[in-house]
């Protein structure tokens, strides 16, 4: 067997092997690379590289080495899942730097953090005044997490409107002009409905690049032909407008009629519509 062929075969085998191993190591390794995992990754790569090039190393030896280097982290993460103590030992604990708005100097010293570095980390999180921080902790991976004081926290929807409807993820039902049946079923809809909705806005399915359904069954589309203007879904806006109009009508009727009983009934219904509007407004404006 010529040398180049051996190298080729080895390389392909190792490539496939490495691919499987990285699949086993999982996504966690990608996002939260600890120093240990970083070194493990480099070493595995190095062993694989040497193995594929160097004909003197026997394949069995190389594979043993790679297996040990890759199985060890898997074993560690498996035991970490089971035991809290082991996890704390391997992955480390977070250290509290600021508590009740006060800097804990002892902990800073323990982590060898100077106050300048702490301020720098805070600035990176857009906090320029130490006084704005209620709580801050150094995570095991070296990131600083900050809880701002209540009056310094950014405004959320819940602060402004009470009883906010929960947001559900939209489903992508058409991609590249092809209907995706599974998301469509998840949204509780079917192809017939989709065809109907597309007909309503006058668009052929072949022209749809992407279509999504939101939590209220409203369809939004992006077309291949960008010159065509697609109307926005109006159903909820129209409903709100219709309800407001009916409420106003009732008030008008109540004013116009001389019939005492009818007047009261109209007023009551106007109130009912008003409470309906306040109840539905957050849902309909979402």
């Amino acid at each position: 067997m010529p040398a180049w062929l051996e190298v080729a075969i080895r390389s392909v085998c190792i490539l496939i092997g490495l691919f499987i191993i990285t699949k086993f190591l999982g996504k966690k390794q990608l996002s939260k690379l600890s120093f240990f995992e970083y070194i493990v990754g480099i070493t595995i790569g190095d062993i694989a590289g040497t193995m594929s090039m160097d004909g003197n190393i026997r394949l069995a030896e190389g594979i043993t080495s790679i297996l040990i280097w890759s199985l060890f982290p898997i074993a560690i993460s498996f035991i970490s899942l089971k035991s809290k103590k082991f996890r704390d030992f391997v992955e480390g604990n977070s250290t509290v730097f600021i508590k009740n708005g006060k800097v804990l100097e002892e902990n800073l010293k323990k982590e060898k953090y100077t106050i300048d570095e702490l301020l720098e980390q805070l600035r990176k999180k857009d906090v320029f005044r130490l006084a704005d921080v209620e709580f801050a902790t150094l995570e095991a991976n070296g990131d600083l997490s900050i809880l701002l004081k209540r009056d310094k926290q950014p405004l959320t929807v819940g602060d402004v409107v009470g009883n906010v409807p929960s947001e559900k993820e939209p489903q992508t039902v058409v991609m590249d002009g092809a209907i995706l049946d599974e998301p469509l079923a998840t949204a509780g809809l079917n192809r017939g409905w989709l065809k109907n909705e597309l007909d309503k806005i006058g668009v052929a399915i072949e022209n749809v690049f992407l279509a999504q359904v939101d939590a209220y069954g409203q369809l939004t589309v992006d077309l291949y032909d960008d010159k065509i203007q697609v109307p926005e879904p109006q159903e909820k806006k129209l409903l709100l407008a219709a309800m407001k109009k009916t409420q106003a009508d009732f008030e008008l009727f109540a004013l116009q009629t001389n019939h005492e009983e009818a007047k009261q009934a109209y007023e009551m219904n106007a109130k009912k519509m008003e409470s309906l509007i306040t109840k539905l407004e957050p849902l309909l404006k979402a």
Binding site: P165, G188, G217
Partner: peptide, 9 residues
Amino acid sequence: LALKSVDEQ
């Protein structure tokens, strides 16, 4: 809307 909504609330 009641039929089409996904959220129970």
